[in-house]
Each structure stands twice: as structure tokens, then as C-alpha cells.
Design a protein around this nucleic acid. Structure first.
Lengths: 122, 122
DNA sequence: CCCATAGTTGAACGGTTGTTCAACTATAGT
DNA sequence: ACTATAGTTGAACAACCGTTCAACTATGGG
């Protein structure tokens, strides 16, 4: 029952720094938006969605154009666009039957550029 | 068989801008590191790993301390640390039986701060 | 030498997630 | 009004991912 004190599951008193732990525990808890943060990263964690964003960086595009660029079905693209829409990473604009998508702000591109830079020198 | 030209799967000529598409297609292909980029984002897309990084931002910690902070088993933490290690997001240092982890560079923290800022005003 | 403990690892299980398929909405042209 | 097409949506299936469990390595103390 007291799994908190079960050895091999959680380590014994010897190693852990109680003061440090409780301090950090509090700080982490303060950032309760951990899930919100992770959600943003998750939206960018899929190759398809990453390609969509890299495409939209170049130009505003209709769903059909995106599906052509990626070589994927309209449906698949539409599903992924929804994810990006829900997180307000992209915005859209109707024009007749077509829907044009574009990046919601340049913030995301900066993020991606930072990651590219990171993956370069590592 | 020619699913590329199958209506309802990929849109017809009317809507798509061939020049634009092929230009972007080439650009996207140039960035063939799409998977590498997505992998970095994926490492940060999990709440557990995000908490680990936020913890390590505060201080170097042994695995046991991290498991205390998160209230998770040593095994679960160790598995996630491996993901972060493989992507060189964290580094480690042995000291007797214990292993101390720390952030590999401040790059990651900047990324997270950017995302926090983004999720604030949106 | 032996035991306890910090940490790692592989297999397995359950939940999540991406794509496909089919059905649907809506707009444009005739 | 009818047909064709751009796009969305829900269900279903497969692949992926995080946690648990058990077995393992390795270090330190008696």
C-alpha cells in the first residue's frame, strides 16, 4: 500500500535531497501549464504537421495544394490541420469552395528555426 | 490504381497552383531533416519529460530526486531520461551508485520559454 | 563475500494517435 | 435543380508510446 516508500520503486532516504526536492516540487507545480506547454510541442512533433507548417511558412495554401505538396489525401491533411487550428497555430480563410490556410504568427517559425539550429550543432 | 488522380482523394486541377506546389515541394524536400526536427519536438511533447526538464532547469538532480519530484517510479523516470539522453537534451554524470542529470545546454530552456510566452497570449 | 540500494533494460499491457474509408456539407457551374 | 468538386468529420484499424513489472548490473558498506 505505501508504494511511496517501497524500495525499488522510489529510492530510499539516503540519496535524495529533501530540501531540494520540495523546493523544485513547488516550482514545478506552480507551472501547472505543463500540459499546455507539452500540447504545443506535441502539435509540432509529427512529421506531417511539421511539413504543413514548413509549407505554410513559404506561402498561404489551400488544403488541396497542401495535399499535393505532401502527397497525402485531403482527409489526412484536413485532420492534421484541425490539430493545428485547435492550438491556434494556423488560421484559415474561405474563398468560394476553397479554404486557404496560413500561419497564425511567426512565433512558431522562430521555434522551429531554433530547433533546426539545435539539431545542427549537436 | 492511380490514386494520385483519384478525385476525392487528391483534388482536381482547378484548385491547385502547380508552380507554387512544385516550388514548395522542393523546399520541403530540401529540409529533409523534417523527421529530426519533429523528433526534438516529440521529446518535449510529453508531460513527464517536460517536468523533468523543468526540474533540471532548477538544479542538477539524481534519478531518485527526479522520481521524488514527479512522484513516479525510478523505472518510468529512467525510461524517459533515456529519450532525453538520446536526443542530447540532457547529460549525466556518475557519482558512486548515483547518476546526476543536468540540461545539456540552455537552448532547450529558451525553447520552452518561447512556448510559454506563446501559450500566454493566445 | 554478501546484502542492500541506485539505476537500467526488455517485455507486455493499455491508451493514444495518424491514416484510411465512407458519408456528409457546401459552393460553383450548367 | 442537378452534378461535380473542396473540404470536413466520425468510425475503425494499425502503429506507436508511456507505464508497470521483473530481472538485471553495479557500487558501497558490513
Amino acid at each position: 500500500m505505501p508504494s511511496k516508500k517501497d524500495p525499488k520503486t522510489v529510492c530510499q532516504v539516503v540519496c535524495f535531497n529533501a530540501a531540494k526536492v520540495s523546493k523544485i516540487k513547488k516550482r514545478i507545480h506552480t507551472v501547472e501549464k505543463v500540459n499546455a506547454i507539452a500540447a504545443i510541442f506535441q502539435a509540432l512533433s509529427d512529421a506531417t504537421r511539421m511539413k504543413i507548417i514548413l509549407s505554410l511558412r513559404e506561402s498561404e495554401l489551400c488544403v488541396c495544394d497542401i495535399s499535393q505538396v505532401l502527397g497525402m489525401s485531403l482527409s489526412a491533411v484536413s485532420h492534421q490541420l484541425r490539430v493545428l487550428r485547435n492550438l491556434r497555430l494556423v488560421k484559415y480563410r474561405n474563398e468560394g469552395r476553397m479554404v486557404f490556410y496560413s500561419l497564425n504568427d511567426s512565433h512558431v517559425v522562430n521555434l522551429i528555426d531554433d530547433v533546426i539550429e539545435h539539431s545542427l550543432h549537436s
